[in-house]
Design a protein around this nucleic acid. Structure first.
Lengths: 215, 215
DNA sequence: AAAGATCTCCTTAAATTCAGGGATTGACGA
DNA sequence: TCGTCAATCCCTGAATTTAAGGAGATCTTT
């Protein structure tokens, strides 16, 4: 008899988490050995138990799916990771691959895809849907070489400004609210755009939402 | 012995849908009589079977949770609706209430809240978390009287422009792409802002994402 | 045919953002 | 102590968006 695939689930939406758990619990070839609502929690579980696969959301508070993947491939070799995300962004996928991810599926795919992904990853080591692969090639095609989103290290102040931008405040209003000069806000805004690799406020909004940087 | 609560589930993310289904299937006082990935499908099911409660996502392609709620309270009196959404927007909640919704919970709440909501709705007729109620009062406090988001009827052209805006294109670029004048694009943009009740491109981006108008 | 909605284009004017550049201060670690 | 980083502020200039007005053309619906 084969060993069960030992899985840890991670998603900061409890309901989704519990739903998936309930879904997978019925599968006899699978064993859920832990659930987490952040990357940090996953690492904590990995410290205590042996796992084969971590299925994680991409955007989570604290440590997100990308950082988690890096951590796992550094300190928990052999544990595979499957990202299960709402969105499908090429640049993210590229970085995930570089971080050693084993698979990427979308949340609007159905149960069979999830089970297939789990199976194939534990057999062949990888699973990526066509949608994901297409997003990847599009991204690499349209972007200058060696792009990374790895200037994601926003400072406290930058994050603060970003959050106010996403509330539709103008730079002037932000300056008033934070008691700083308009010039300063503009500087933060420029640095944010540079770090997040976008060209205007719309891009900032999208990145903030997609990366889970704001509510 | 009490009758089971007959529930229809709706969400355009299959995995979430199946997860919740699996979660609720274990509850003996509940019977899942149908699953749908759009409001239209829910109505189709309601045409064939009798249900007590529809648990639906807010943003879905085609007919969303708000329209669905209206439809149900017009043509399927007695069927209750519980909205289960990612976000928590006061204005939406207000409209949902006016449309006759019975409850609103967030996707990051846990199983117990979901079960509690189902129970209380079928007993008392309503369930709203504190978070939701707070969002409602905040919204009503800060907005001019009798606001509705019910100019949501974007025209084909407006939607087209909106989608290009969310891709970080400038008005000039959009004009080029659609072979129309810059002036026209600006007009569409203004009308979009008016309809969606936002003040700038950032607001457009958020509305587009939150309402599921764009990928 | 009249009413209404949609799409289009235009003008004027103000406000805001975007894109460079540079400079100072304080904190923190090497 | 030196270098780096974060945060602050400043300048100039161009580009873009926002605001508010009107107006003609087409198409649908009543």
């Amino acid at each position: 008899m084969k060993n069960k695939i030992r899985i840890i689930l991670a998603d900061d939406h409890s309901m989704f988490l519990e739903g998936i758990e309930s879904l997978l619990r019925d599968q006899e070839e699978i064993e859920i050995i832990g659930c987490a609502i952040s990357g940090m929690e996953v690492l904590k579980i990995l410290g205590n138990k042996e796992a084969d696969l971590v299925i994680s959301d991409l955007t989570m508070k604290g440590m997100d799916g990308l950082e988690l993947t890096r951590e796992i491939n550094k300190n928990h070799i052999g544990v595979k990771t499957l990202i299960c995300s709402m969105h499908c962004e090429g640049i993210k996928i590229k970085e995930l691959l570089e971080a050693g991810v084993s698979g990427y599926i979308l949340k609007n795919c159905d149960k069979t895809v999830l089970l297939e992904a789990i199976q194939l990853i534990s057999e062949n080591g990888q699973y990526f849907t066509d949608e994901v692969k297409n997003a990847l090639v599009n991204s690499l095609m349209h972007q200058e070489p060696s792009t990374t989103s790895e200037n994601l290290k926003l400072t406290k102040r930058e994050l603060e400004v970003l959050q106010l931008i996403t509330k539709e405040l103008t730079n002037t209003e932000i300056a008033d609210k934070l008691f700083i000069s308009l010039y300063t806000v503009e500087t933060h805004r420029r640095n944010l755009m540079k770090k997040l690799k976008v060209n205007n406020g719309v891009g900032l909004m999208r990145e903030a939402l997609v990366r889970g940087l704001v509510a």
